[in-house]
């Protein structure tokens, strides 16, 4: 579904954080990217969604070249992105936040209502707090708003960057459960995670990045065994 081929990208013209990263993601799978801090995991998601333009390489979605696309166009193609940084619209209500997710089909009132209803079913918390300003919600609830907002446009692929960072264990688990649900509904999920144990537990396929390059990859089973080794590798 998504294929990233030999991508080089970075924040400054001549300094590439990503130095030839390749990755594939398929529907009904959680593809997890792990690796030490600063190896370019977040940079990779930003590059896929168009916040950074690759200096080299190619990104394709459903065989269509989307290299260097603008973020607001990526959404239309069926991608969704949930960055690590909290990014709800703080001074808007929960419902307004969700409705903003429908920007690209804002004239279709019926569809907006349908998607809202789906979201409230999925996140009963949000249904109760629909009139509350998003800035007043807890961290976990804000994540749900972000997830719900991303789901408004029916994305085929979700790029999720450390969704559980800083959350209470209860909320972290809820978020992971939602991601698994989404996978089961047929979506492709690309997940960047700090909590490696949990990340691998819900993953179908795992990529390990190091210093902007692919280091290892394989189905989940491979890493369940090697986990200890992997950790030691990073620490020393």
């Amino acid at each position: 579904m998504l294929s990233v081929e030999e991508v080089y990208a970075g924040y400054y013209r001549d300094i590439n954080v990503l130095q030839g990263v390749s990755l594939r993601a398929e529907a009904q799978q959680i593809t997890t990217i792990i690796g030490p801090n600063g190896v370019g995991k977040s940079t990779l998601l930003k590059t896929i969604y168009g916040f950074l333009k690759p200096n080299r390489g190619r990104i394709a979605f459903h065989e269509e070249d989307i290299t260097g696309i603008a973020p607001y166009q990526a959404l239309v193609k069926g991608l969704a992105y949930i960055p690590q940084r909290r990014n709800v619209f703080r001074y808007m209500t929960v419902e307004e936040n969700l409705v903003m997710g429908a920007w690209t089909f804002r004239r279709d009132k019926a569809r907006i209502q349908r998607k809202l209803a789906e979201n409230y079913e999925r996140f009963p918390n949000l249904a109760r707090k629909r009139k509350v300003k998003a800035g007043f919600l807890s961290g976990g609830e804000q994540r749900m708003v972000e997830l719900g907002r991303a789901l408004m446009s029916d994305p085929k692929l979700l790029l999720v960057d450390e969704p559980t960072a800083g959350l209470a264990p209860k909320f972290a688990k809820m978020i992971r459960d939602h991601l698994v649900d989404l996978k089961n509904e047929g979506k492709a999920v690309v997940l960047v995670e700090q909590n490696i144990r949990e990340a691998i537990r819900i993953a179908d396929y795992v990529y390990v990045l190091d210093l902007g390059r692919n280091k290892e990859e394989g189905p989940r089973e491979k890493f369940l065994v090697d986990l200890k080794e992997l950790m030691r590798d990073w620490l020393f």
Binding site: A70, P83, F89, G101
Partner: peptide, 16 residues
């Protein structure tokens, strides 16, 4: 308002 509150988030939901 969305752009004023969070520029990147607005781009994420498809606002130019």
């Amino acid at each position: 308002r969305a752009v004023s509150q969070d520029r990147d988030a607005a781009a994420i939901v498809g606002v130019n």
